[in-house]
Design a protein around this nucleic acid. Structure first.
Lengths: 207, 207
DNA sequence: TGCAAAATACCGACCGGTTGGTATGTTGAC
DNA sequence: GTCAACATACCAACCGGTCGGTATTTTGCA
């Protein structure tokens, strides 16, 4: 129903296989909790291949965040909600899509960047920056739609950039609560509250 | 201004010192990224003391979550916002208090349970459960006020339990974004949006 | 009250396995 | 033949955890 990796091509090179393994293992074990050897076994390659493509484990972490960012960015860029005429509907359509993507075990819909940055924000500046770029990229992709919706509704006391980041905040928070035991339902509930927030905000402007 | 540990007594026994060290190190390095030896050095005790008080590193993780839960629970139980008469004001007062607690480096205001559960939810059922209890406990402490506010405003299409958990969701998400680079401002912004959500929700019921 | 015994708190050297990382091949396409 | 893409073998440091032992406190009984 909801495929784990609906937007990524089948990996062919050892590098791709390692990045795919990184996404899978980091999602369920975290960055520090995943060893280089585990990554190699999961990817079906040897340690030599690993250090041929990545100068260190940290470099793999950075590359995984960038890989994740590119994959998700492409997926949302091609999503159909962009074609809705009403910018308000586009924003709500994005949230609906995020809700639809949630399902199954937490590690199949959670975020690699959010997971990694929690552990590594102090120990690795490079990983932190790569994760920030990933999350900020997701926010930026939505900001213009939010901006248009705010203008249309005559709202000027809330910034589009702040709202775009708040969407990411609720998504990331939903993943944390889901991991704590709430599962997919919890992550969905978070986005339903977010949608209600946006609906009330946009309606407030109309009246 | 905003003390890092305003509610915890000075640790005296090796066990307390280790729990205090765990809170500090897990907040800034994560659970898997923190070694037993690091914990001992930070606490100023030896490895012998560590394994005298905790049967394993995992047991320390569980105890740290419980310690964290007890400390924060006590702090919020004694907070002055409880004395406000209007339940709506009590709920908004809680959010204001959470906003006021945010400041300085991220690792001084972030959540131990949220950090740990992100990494360990699959690898340690015990840690996952302890973190869930901590987060659910925070939510439960707010649920009765939210319930009273909803009744007062005549709102029956939103559950108090769901809203209470959503508060925790936004708090946790704010920490993730703050770690990704937004810092204290980002964590505060998240709660300002949350407060606006509650204000609109309660106002909707009044009209 | 005195005092031995037992429980608790703590110490630090040590162990086997795992870690991230390296040095040195081997192979196959151009 | 050259060079990128791997594979194999190996290493030193570090990891969580053990163990024999000591200092301190608590307990139980005469």
């Amino acid at each position: 129903m909801i495929p784990n990796q609906p937007f990524r091509p089948a990996p062919v090179t050892a590098r791709d296989k390692l990045l795919e393994a990184a996404v899978k293992l980091i999602r369920s074990q975290g960055y520090a909790g995943t060893s280089v050897e585990q990554l190699c076994v999961e990817a079906g390659v040897t340690k030599g291949a690993f250090f041929h493509h990545f100068s260190s484990k940290e470099a793999l972490g950075v590359a995984a965040a960038e890989y994740w960012s590119a994959s998700t960015g492409q997926f949302f860029a091609n999503a159909p909600y962009h074609q809705l005429e009403d910018p308000v509907e586009r924003v709500l359509g994005y949230i609906d899509l995020r809700i639809a993507l949630i399902g199954g075990p937490v590690e199949t819909f959670s975020c690699v960047a959010g997971t990694m940055v929690q552990e590594a924000f102090r120990t690795s500046a490079a990983i932190r920056a790569a994760c920030e770029a990933s999350i900020a990229g997701n926010a930026a992709a939505l900001e213009s739609d939010i901006e248009a919706a705010l203008v249309q509704c005559g709202i000027d006391d809330v910034k589009a950039s702040s709202l775009a980041l708040h969407v990411q905040t609720v998504i990331q928070g939903g993943f944390v609560l889901a991991k704590a035991g709430g599962g997919a339902d919890m992550a969905r509930d978070a986005l339903i509250h977010l949608k209600r927030y946006f609906e009330m905000l946009f309606k407030r402007g109309e009246s």
